[in-house]
């Protein structure tokens, strides 16, 4: 018992060389660390402060007027713009991210097979990454270049409307009408999947084939588990991309609020909006992380369970030892005070 304890307490002191190494590490990271303070922590704290104030900028000075939670009540209660935008954003992200990821995976699987002109197709599917930017997209959408005229969105919506609630059906219609844009967002994801697929060990597939596994089984039992981390990576990349893309209405709303000349809006109002927005984005990321994050595999879990068991047993052991010591003490004192009469062989008790 005591051996275990000792081993835990003993922490090896870092040597001189290691210390120097660590110092060099800090040196290399130093610019970024300064940046964290200057461009992350400080602005974060500042904007947290701003959101409780109404900030008015006059040519002479910047006036801070304590507002309390008034900014929030204004955003939520007085105009429906922001809450509605938020709901649309969440809905859109939750629907579109899986579509983009699955679509990217399908294309990557198709390109991964024996295919002539693979280079050409890769070139083609990667092209949007170069072009895609807010204003260009807006321009293309506004000129109707983003929808295929041959696709009858109305018919699709009504077809889905038969067995889906209205809201879901209309969002499905929206997806189809913005199909090209959705596909355009999946350039990087396709390449990430493709390069992950090419690194799956072919011996695994061969082994599965010898054991009589079909292509379908191979996909679910080999391909998917191997590239699962990439699924998560792509999902998060997509969320972040969509949340900072200029087509997103919310971020434009924040910018407009920041520079609107009205009395009640301004930096404070915009900060409150930005905070709520980023909390929502983070929550969406966390949601996808929980859904797709790697669960510990069986072996890992077994090891953990075993460790826990050991700990429990050790605790029990300790308890027993403590008890027995206490009991021994009690017994000893009892004996001293002649509490227990033992049979001394004299014949009577």
């Amino acid at each position: 018992m005591s051996d275990l304890k000792k081993e835990k307490k003993r922490v090896r002191k870092p040597g001189k060389l290691e210390k120097r190494e660590a110092r060099m590490g800090y040196l290399f990271v130093a610019p970024w660390l300064i940046g964290v303070v200057a461009f992350l922590l400080y602005p974060l704290g500042q904007s947290f402060r701003y959101m409780w104030y109404n900030i008015r900028i006059t040519p002479v000075e910047t006036k801070f007027i304590w507002y309390g939670t008034q900014n929030f009540s204004q955003i939520w209660l007085e105009s429906a713009e922001f809450p509605q935008g938020l709901v649309t954003y969440i809905w859109k992200t939750i629907v579109e991210v899986p579509i983009i990821v699955v679509f990217a995976l399908i294309i990557a699987m198709m390109l991964n097979g024996k295919i002539r002109l693979r280079g050409f197709f890769r070139l083609l599917f990667f092209l949007p990454v170069i072009i895609v930017s807010g204003p260009v997209m807006n321009m293309l959408v506004s000129e109707g270049a983003a929808t295929i005229p041959a696709m009858n969105v109305q018919a699709i919506v009504s077809a889905f409307g038969r067995f889906l609630p209205d809201k879901a059906a209309s969002s499905v219609g929206e997806i189809f009408s913005n199909m090209i844009m959705t596909l355009w967002y999946s350039g990087v994801q396709i390449l990430i999947f493709l390069s992950a697929l090419q690194k799956v060990d072919p011996a695994l597939y061969e082994a599965a084939k010898i054991d009589g596994g079909s292509g379908w089984e191979c996909f679910w039992k080999i391909t998917l588990p191997t590239i699962k981390p990439m699924v998560l990576l792509n999902a998060i990349y997509t969320i972040i991309f969509m949340s900072s893309n200029e087509q997103n209405e919310l971020i434009n709303m924040i910018k407009n609020a920041m520079f609107s000349g009205t009395k009640e809006k301004g930096y404070g109002y915009a900060s409150a909006m930005a905070w709520m927005y980023s909390i929502v984005v983070t929550l969406v990321v966390v949601l996808f992380f929980l859904l797709l994050g790697s669960k510990k595999d069986k072996y890992d879990r077994a090891v953990r369970r075993y460790r826990r068991q050991q700990k429990r047993e050790a605790r029990l052991q300790k308890k027993i030892q403590r008890r027995s010591k206490r009991n021994a003490r009690k017994y000893a004192s009892g004996v001293r005070r002649n509490k227990y009469k033992t049979y001394d062989g004299s014949g009577d008790y």
Partner: peptide
């Protein structure tokens, strides 16, 4: 911890730090 901050700074939308940065 620093790596954690790094990933966090990627997830965090730039809008939240945008306003004070602009002021700065």
């Amino acid at each position: 911890i620093m790596m954690g901050i790094l990933i966090f700074s990627y997830i965090l939308p730039s809008q939240v730090t945008m306003i004070p940065t602009y002021v700065l």
